[in-house]
Nucleic acid binder design. Sequence first.
RNA 1: GUGCUUGUAGCUCAGUUGGAUAGAGCGUUUCCCUCCGAAGGAAAAGGCCGUGGGUUCGACUCCCGUCAAGCACACCA
Length: 579
Amino acid sequence: MIKDYFLDKVEDAVLKAVQDNKLGQMSEYKRETLVVERPKNPDFGDFAVNVSSLARSAKIAPPAIANAIVSEIDKDDNEYSVIGGFINFKAGKNLLINSIDEIFKKRENYGRPENIKKENIILEYVSANPTGPFHIGHGRWAAMGSVLANLLKFYGHDVYQEFYINDAGSQIQKLGNSLAIRIRQELGEDIDFPSDEVERKNYYPGDYLIPVAKKFVKEQNNILQSVHNDVTKIDVKTLSDFAKNEMEKLQKELLEHFRVHFDNFYSELTLHKSGKVDECVNKLKESGKIYKKDGADWFRSSDYGDDQDRVIKKADGSNTYLTADIAYHIDKLERGFDRMINIWGADHHGYVARVRASIEALGYNPDKLEILLGQLVNLVINGNEVRMGKRKNMVTLDDLIEEVGVDATRFWMSMRNIDTTLDFDIELAKTKSDENPVFYVQYAHARACSILRNAVENKVDTETGKSVPAPLAEAELAELKNNYKKEYLLPTLDTARKLVLKLEEFKSMIKMSAETRQVYTICRYVQELASEFHSFYNANRVISDDRELMKSRLALVLSVKQVLKNALDILAVTAPERM
RNA sequence: GUGCUUGUAGCUCAGUUGGAUAGAGCGUUUCCCUCCGAAGGAAAAGGCCGUGGGUUCGACUCCCGUCAAGCACACCA
């Protein structure tokens, strides 16, 4: 990376200057003390380093330090200039040419770092209850999680994507009871969910169980006959299992459609059945971190930073949700993953401390668990915020995707910092104009493709009716693409510096994004690259009579297309050839 | 009451780990197609970085207080 190249040069020079006693009283320098930044004013250069931080140990003024350092640098064809305590750097032709060359060499792998410490990561996200359709909040975790998985894989890690199904506990019974009501309605009975608010909370009154009830009546006739259509005589488990399977099926179909791929769906129920939950309780007891109070077993999570202790086994002998969750995380560790990354909604933040505590209490390293807490999603309809209430006004993810499409939904759900509440403006996400960043970016890709098509297409002159030969033969374009030579770029280099630098930035953007787990940086980058490309397009005509210049610019167009594609692939947003 | 997150341009948001004149998109105003996609581009206007202190040569960034918004504080899952 040009950035790293520059920093290396500066640091080598600092070390040399220190050795030659040219930096005042400074006697040693530790690498990575200095930081590369972007100059506020682009006229200063492409990158800059501020050496003011060295002034304290050197005991000489920052400009003198900067000059001393620059005088030690082997400059090649790059420009170094000193303003105050800043060393500004402007990349020369060699570096710029090399960065485009790299794109042609690496193609779809451009941006993947050479040497990273590869980790075997389990990424858990969405993990919704199988008791209903996804709401738009789930959409944010689904989009961000799958982008993060793509990103970390691209970066070089092994990523195993898992969905934890909360298919145990009271809500499943609730689901069965709700289905019973829907089936009775289906059979013609005049019955409805209780109107009393408190009692109503024991049911899922949403419409989504109606088709499930219809299906049950159609497919499970033998069961209904055996109880002479008296639904109350059917075992609740039969009903809840049926509903649960239907919900899981719907959820999985939607995830596929949304381009979200899980390697595994891990059932909480199997965790209980396998005895792993009990095993976990026993281990905690052995660790001496359990005590009895009011008939329940309490875990001393407060010994590990939690603000209070937590019940692990209720007075009635059953386990809490937390107990299963602990067992689940221990199971992940025992499956041999180096790192566990979970994406949780901010409404679960209270769980972070207790899960970490349990991991530590059981003798594992809690730092292996990374929990990304995401703020929630607000829907904006016609400029008005629609608060996502518990059940009322619930917009399902299905509806949203149908309304705005997979590409726009994925992009919008990924484009904001995970720490900020996301305002999802439906109208804006639907617009096909520059107001909508997804289309702006896709348009840039389509435009690049269009130029490449035009370069090799024979045209017909509308006035004379004569055919006009293509500016470039197919074979020549193929040659440019497959046997790219560094010299190709030279003729357009001066007018394309900004664009080349932006293409080069892809590498550092990927690094930053992967290391901070913040996928929105990819969305931002792709908009910036599109902007630079549109700008270049307007200022420079690609197809022209000057063949060398044309080839040079086509090489850039090919590069832009490649890098846009690489970024959009990570986002799993399509890169259209035409729109 | 306690904890977590967020307050930056009219709106939606960046701000690379404490540095140069605080940036981008939308919106507003003015320009740019005889020609590769104007679904684009160029430019202008727009800011007490919620607020009050502190640390520092230097603070949007770090610390403390304070105000506002969201979320969470179960032997529910």
